[in-house]
Write a protein that binds this DNA or RNA. Structure first.
Lengths: 199, 199
DNA sequence: CATTGTTTTCAGAAATTACTGAAAACAACT
DNA sequence: AGTTGTTTTCAGTAATTTCTGAAAACAATG
């Protein structure tokens, strides 16, 4: 380890402080990768683009995060898929540049939209299918009353669980749906239930 | 591969159909493990306890899921930590039994509580720290107006992000907080914003 | 306090996931 | 159609996460 000592915010001017602050943000965002269901690097690339606020090209990203070209390419592609990074171009430059969605609410709507699609929707589909498997009529009559009860209880558990996710899905759709409804939801909630001012 | 053919729900009576339905639920729940930030096995153990609805001992679980004793033990411990599985005992039996919280809303409140604690709280703390790093006064005067602008923009991005998570945290607290508020939130939301009936 | 039944721990093994780098594909320009 | 600069792909490798199994710890019982 080189004698770098703990990054000292302003030991070398405001420029350095900015850099350190960016790096910390990138690190923190990287830690959260798990929570968004993406890889650490992908989160870091996104963090870099977001906190930098200006278009960067693949080489910028490779250098700043010290990752390979392949990794950078794949991460960017994935971020484009998630819809939270856009392509950008500079006149007279053949390279592609990338910039992150800067509106935080828009960004999280995109994330929720994607996670609903990838996780909630398939889950709900499976739950429906499984629930229907033990529908009365689809299974023969139980030999004992105890077994009949067990099956009924089982069906009810599935039913409750399915309803729960149906609710989650509906909430998610509300949040995601057109024209900034998401903000309204959160605001109205905090207003209605906690009695006024923001925490 | 043995000639097991696709599990046929009712090819051998209601008992078998029940078993297959349970297994499918366990598999589906296992798939979702990533979304809850836990390991596949841990999710499967929970699924088994939930869908079974009755207390099981370590050996039951090992056998049914075909996992080692160590794995079962660690998974159960983690589920206890999350607060979605409780210990149970049977008279005249030395073994420990475990049962899953059966109320779905209670269960998800526990999950949200834990994720707030493990993810949102630390994130928010870090964001505050980073934001304060570039507070005016903590960094020296910028040499150029451009740099000053950059720093201001940077600070604003952090500010917005921090506020967003503050809101999330507040929402989460509401959901988690005493006495089933969580249900009210979701219900009132669906009612207020989507104009009536459940999807 | 020895025995027996049970649970926990944890070093090493296995499985999974993420990353690299070089080759192939692509695209703009001549 | 060739040259040059850029991006994508993917087989192999590296890093991380998860799991096993046997030993240690624990606890109830005689």
């Amino acid at each position: 380890m080189l004698p770098a000592m703990k990054p000292t915010p302003d030991s070398d001017g405001p420029e350095a402080a900015l850099r350190v602050s960016q790096d910390q943000f990138i690190a923190v965002w990287g830690q959260m990768a798990g929570a968004w269901g993406i890889s650490r690097t992908m989160a870091e690339v996104h963090a870099l683009l977001f906190i930098t606020g200006e278009p960067l090209c693949t080489d910028d990203i490779m250098e700043r995060l010290d990752i390979s070209r392949g990794n950078a390419s794949m991460s960017l592609r994935a971020l484009l898929d998630w819809g939270i990074v856009q392509r950008a171009h500079k006149r007279g430059d053949r390279k592609e540049y990338f910039e992150a969605e800067q509106d935080v609410w828009t960004m999280f709507r995109a994330i929720v939209r994607e996670r609903l699609k990838r996780e909630a929707d398939p889950l709900l589909a499976s739950l429906h299918e499984i629930r229907d498997m033990t529908k009365p009529g689809r299974v023969g009559a139980a030999e004992t009353p105890e077994l009949a009860d067990k099956i009924a209880a089982h069906r009810e558990r599935l039913e409750t669980m399915t309803e729960f996710f149906q609710t989650v899905e509906n909430l998610g759709q509300q949040f995601v749906s057109p024209a900034g409804k998401g903000l309204q939801i959160a605001a109205s909630l905090l207003g209605t239930l906690s009695g006024g001012g923001r925490g």
